[in-house]
Amino acid sequence: MIRAILKGLFYLVLAGAAATFLYPFIWMVLGTLKPEVEIAGLKLWPSTFTLESYRAVFSKIPVGRAFFNSMLVSTLVTASVLLLSSITGYALSRLTFKGRDIIFGLLLFTMMLPFQITLIPMYVLMVKFHWIDTYQALIVPAMVSAFAILIFRQSFKTIPGDLIDSARLDGCGELEILFRIIWPLSKPALITVGILTFVNTWNDVLWPIIVIRDQSMMTMPQMVALYAVGGQAEAQVGNILAAATLLAVPIIIAYLIFQKYFIESMATSGLKG
């Protein structure tokens, strides 16, 4: 009896929590399809469906361009992090060389460092390089990630040394070993780093706000943030919500498809503390 009540209570809590997490998103998406005057009301379902809000967003800001920028930047950063960080992770885990421990120390130090310290000098650096309003400013600072190196180092350590030694005997170069032997054996680490890097790059907004001013160079979150707080939405709530929906949907779709990987990789990232 008590068990049954407890069980019921559990489901009640879970259902309440699920509703709390999902309802605002449902409200937002339906809000974008409502006529402007209905959005503030309590009624969830629109009386008539309209795409006016989306039409207005597309006519006012270059959403397609921002989507392309975000895709390009996130893809290049992810590719670069996978490549460069796994190389360093490999060196740190499987090779011995002078200064390895120092480099490992540097790595841990980098991870502890709050970004506030480097933010302003980084901005100055970008200005001096003439990288303001360029893809370089968005990509280059993110090309290597200390956290990714750490994950790769951890993962590569579990690979049996015999495999690597015999490959060396067969005359494989180190990079060949990494990409031919280590990578195929480290899919979970690659997926984790890939998803994390992509999502974080896609969602980052502070850095683009600082280094990008040209509207045609803006990423999605930046453009949507400026559209919503700046004057361009002309104070039409439907437009603001539509812009937010356009920003959220690609990641939500990716999440629904790769849900298992998303949750696992995010959970791994949590353990870095």
Partner: peptide, 25 residues
């Protein structure tokens, strides 16, 4: 042991960085 195989990579990176500098400067 890695210096030989890493060389092209370093070249590639400095080329990329140099290109960026040249293009933007």
């Amino acid at each position: 042991p890695d210096s030989r195989s890493a060389l092209p990579l370093i070249r590639w990176i400095s080329l990329l960085a140099g290109l960026g500098l040249v293009l933007s400067c």
